[in-house]
Each structure stands twice: as C-alpha cells, then as structure tokens.
Amino acid sequence: MLIVESLTKSFPLDEGEVRAVDELSFSVQPGEVFGLLGPNGAGKTTTLRMVLGLVKPDSGYAEVDGYRTADNPIAVKSRLGFVSASDGVYPWLSVREMLLYFADLYDVPPIKAAARCEHLAELMGITSLLDRRAGTLSTGQRQRVTLVRGLIHDPPVMLLDEPTRGLDVVGVQTIFEYIEHLREVGKSVVVCTHRLDEAERLCDRFGLLHAGRMQQTGTLEQLRQQSGHNHLVEMFVELLRS
C-alpha cells in the first residue's frame, strides 16, 4: 500500500518561491483506485514525482510497503509502476526489446521477464506487436505498450499520470479495462487526472487537489454529502470560486 504524509515542495521563482505541493497526505489500500484530481498546475505530477523519488520533498514523506522514498529509494522504486501520458518509446527497438530493457532496469531475472512480457502482451492484446519496431506504432498501440511496460516488474503500487490524455474513445476504454484489471489483481492505484467525468467512473476514492493543497477526500458518496453537489465537476467549480 501507499502512504503519503505531509508532502511539501516549493520551487524557486525569480522572485520568492511557489509552493507546488503543500502538506499533502493520503493513502491507498491494495485493490483501491485513488483519483488525485485537480486542474492543471494543482501539483498532481509533482506529487507523483516525489513519491517516485524524482523530486526531493522539502518535508514529509512517501512510503510504499513500509519503505520510505528518501531512506530507501531503490526498494520504493522497484515497488512502483509508473505510466505517464508523456511517456515515449525507443523508436529503434522492437517492442519486446524495449519491454525487456525495462525488465532489466527493474532487475527482473531474464527468464521471468520473458514470461511476464508474453503474459502481459496477451492481456493487453499486443502480442502481434511484440516484434514490431516501436517507432512504427500508432498512438493507441504505443499507449498499450506503455501500460504493459509499467507492469513488467509486477509492482504492488501503480501511478498513472493523465493516462487518458490524447486518446480516442477506444483508447480511453483500454485504460478503463486496464484499471479494472489492476483493481482485480489487488494493486494500489493512483490516477492523476483533470478529466473529472472519467474519474467518476474509474476511481473508488478521490482527493480534490487545488493549489498544492488537498481540499477534500472521500468516496463519491461522502463528497456528495459534504458538498451538496452531485458531480465532481460542480464540486470543483465551487472550490475554484471560493
């Protein structure tokens, strides 16, 4: 499971500094899909980067299965899967080569990696693409490859950053199925998105993030009772106005 406790990060500007993430706390249980929601610049990506150890927090910590990012980055990274909308591929490698490369980066033994590669490819329907050069893939195919890549080391925690950005209806449907699969196999999942309508369908619990601060957390039912609004969009509009 994933625990985020009081994470804080400021970035220096020309004058003063901006607090990108401010005392952010939440936790995600196995088999739970947590939606970290907020408009652009709310601090979603910075939060994920701090969990991954790509950005050092000013204070607070992230903990995966009892390991803290700051103390044991390697143990944490090997337990995290990370997929972002801006992820690319190596154009000159075949899909299989690229997946096995990432298996090596995650120190998955080669035999296990090959088996896992086949299994996941079948699951995501990219078996026929495995020996294609990654540079020749379409956007939708590329997205599936990226999703498989994030799972190659079978991490207990998955972080998805804007997974539906730039995808068509079929692509978005693939993401839905993927997240459903993650929930089934008991992963703790964090989905960062500003697409509130999609989030409503995808996630079990929500955290509404604005200007680096967690404004509200809870299930859709709890949020409805707290806010008196029926949809996340309405809740957000009110949040932004106040």
């Binding site: 090997s78 992820d87 890549r149």
Partner: peptide, 18 residues
C-alpha cells in the same frame, strides 16, 4: 526528447549503470 527519460529515472537502476 523521446519521453523515455522519466520512465528510466523512475526505475530502481543505478544511474551510473545507465
């Protein structure tokens, strides 16, 4: 530029090896 950097950095590999 290809967008593979972040995924590599998110992995537990020693940067020196890469």
């Amino acid at each position: 530029e290809r967008g593979t950097m972040e995924a590599v950095m998110a992995s537990p590999v020693n940067r020196g090896y890469v």
